[in-house]
Structures are given as structure tokens and as C-alpha cells.
Amino acid sequence: MAEAAILAAALDQLARGTDPMEAPVQILDDKLAEKRAARRGNRGIKLNVIPMIDVTFFLLVFFVCANKTLDREEFLRTDLSQRGGAVVSPNSLALDEPPLRIELLRIGQQTKIKIIAPMAQPDTFEQLTAIFNSKRYSTENPSGLFPADQPIELAPSQDVPWDDAVAAFNGLVRAGYQQIHFAGPQ
């Protein structure tokens, strides 16, 4: 095939009146250069990305699992205001206002909520939230009794489960109060 091309080129050169021996050499050189380039192309650098993808997916799966395992809990803040700590001082005179006391009593397998104030007594933590929300003073509720920073002392009795103490605390936070403290050891 190459010989035919050389022959055709030589005939072409003869027809033009130039030296036919120069052209075949040129063509041969070109052909060899092409072959060399093709061979070089076959030896090109390849990037094998399959292990990289494997490892990337493995890490992705691991992070997803670890994230679900470690970070699936949330936190109730007890320093909602800078005015108080987690536990109210035994000397209540040190406070700006006397705290409103809510006791949690364990009767049988039930926890009873008792607000030490002349107001409606809730049966459930949902009712506790509703009552305290309705009593919170705000521009929308000018007839409310307590400001949002009213100190509230939550006093669970000794055998109340932590679940109920947290539920009461959570209910008061949801009602919009900012100074809820657990009572000290009784």
C-alpha cells in the first residue's frame, strides 16, 4: 500500500517536472514519524480511578453511619439567661424576685405536677406548657402574669424519674420562660 503511494507520488513529481527521488524519501520519513507517534500514543499515562472511587464511597458510607450514631442527640440549655445557673441558690433572698416553685411528686407510678401558686393545676406536661404559655406576659398577651424572665424553680421529688424532670423542664422552655432552675438537693 505504501509502495503504491510512493509510486503515485513519484509519477506525480515526474509529471510536474521535479526530481522524483526526493518525494518518496519525504513520504517515507512522514510515514515513519506517524508510526512512532502512534506507538508513543499507546504508551500514554493512564489514570486508574476505580480504587479511588472505591475508597471514596467507603469513606462516605462510614461518615454517614458515624454521623447517625454519634450525633443523634440534642441538648436542653439550662443557662437560657445569664442571671442564673442550673441550680437555684438555697438563699432565695439573693434572687431579684422570689422564684415560682413547681414540684413534681411521685405517686405510685405517676408523676404529679404541683404549682405552688393559686392557679390551675396541670395533669400533664402538655397542660403545664399550655398554662404557663397563657400566663406569660408579652405584647400579644398583656394580661399575662409572669414575664419571660420570671425565675422558676423546678423541684422534683427524690424518686421522680429523670425523664419526667426533663419533660417538665422542656415544657417550661417551650412555654417561653428563660430562667428555669432545678431545686437543690432536699
Binding site: 443523634r72 442527640e73 440534642e74 441538648f75 436542653l76 440549655r77 439550662t78 443557662d79 445569664q82 442564673g84 445557673g85 442550673a86 441550680v87 422534683p156 427524690q158 429523670w162 424532670a165 426533663v166 423542664f169 422542656n170 432545678f182 431545686a183 437543690g184 438537693p185 432536699q186
Partner: peptide, 29 residues
């Protein structure tokens, strides 16, 4: 729980006078 809540509050004040502990109660949503 009560004594620990009490002591953690005291620990913060003991560590740095006037410091209020940022106590967080862990719950599971």
C-alpha cells in the same frame, strides 16, 4: 441527679469566680 447538678454549678464558680456553667441536658429527639 440533684447532687451532681448542684456540684457542677459549684465547680464552675470554684474554677473561675463568677463563672456560670453552660449546662446542657442530653435528650433524644
Amino acid at each position: 441527679i440533684s447532687p451532681v447538678l448542684d456540684q457542677v454549678g459549684k465547680a464552675a464558680t470554684k474554677a473561675i469566680p463568677g463563672h456560670l456553667v453552660k449546662l446542657r441536658l442530653a435528650v433524644q429527639p
